[in-house]
Simulated scan of single mutants.
Amino acid sequence: MAVGRIIFLNGTSSSGKSSIAQELVDILDDGVFFHLAVDSFNAMRTKRNLAQEDLDVALRRTRLGFHRAIAAMAEVGNDVVVDHVLSEPWRLIDCLSVLPPDNVLFVGVRCPLDELARREQARGDRPSGLAALQYDLVHQHGDYDIECDTSAASPRDCAELIKEFLPRRPTPTAFARLRVRYLEDECRAPSR
């Protein structure tokens, strides 16, 4: 059984990842794609108030489970479009350790900060300033297979760009390059 393809969209909150993912699921015609969104996983958790420490632990476990759900879907041959916010370095490192790097097309979803703030306010369902807090963090690893700017292109245009690029993804992929940088360097580091 062939491992499924993973189109991994990374960007701040309100950058347009979910809109691009929905368009991709609609236009990709060479397989059956599933949209896996970290927000959907967060929405499944209990809604009662938790102490901040308990919430932090629950959110970390949620993300760890989300990464493994992506891997499990792909492992059994499903193609997936992932929409995620890699705003903490451990999230990227965990994804690099559990996802098959040669099957991941890593897409940077960018948008200028002023437009993110405008979108965030218009949405009204996100804490004000969330995108600004994530802005310098989500792309700090600096390596993608392809990038799109949602202030300059519609979600459909971004999806078309990604669709055209998918069969030509590079070797090694950005995930493979990042895996060498983050995981192999970690293995070579002297223990403390």
Rank of each mutant, 00 (worst) to 15 (best):
V82A: 04
V57A: 05
P101S: 01
R48D: 09
V82W: 07
L86M: 02
L92C: 10
H84E: 13
L96A: 00
F106M: 12
N103G: 05
V98I: 09
T46N: 15
L86K: 01
E88R: 09
N103T: 10
V104S: 12
S97N: 00
N42Y: 15
D102H: 04
T62S: 02
G108I: 00
D79A: 11
M73T: 01
E53Q: 07
A43D: 14
H67I: 06
F106S: 04
R61D: 12
P101N: 08
E75W: 08
I93C: 05
D79H: 13
R60S: 10
L64Q: 08
V85D: 00
D54F: 05
H84R: 05
H67K: 01
M73K: 08
G108S: 11
Q52I: 15
K47N: 12
A69E: 08
T62N: 12
V85E: 06
A74V: 07
D79M: 00
V104R: 04
A51H: 15
C95A: 10
L64R: 12
P89W: 05
E53P: 00
M73N: 09
C95M: 10
R68C: 03
L96P: 01
T62C: 12
W90C: 03
K47P: 11
R63K: 05
P89F: 00
E75K: 13
M44K: 09
D79C: 07
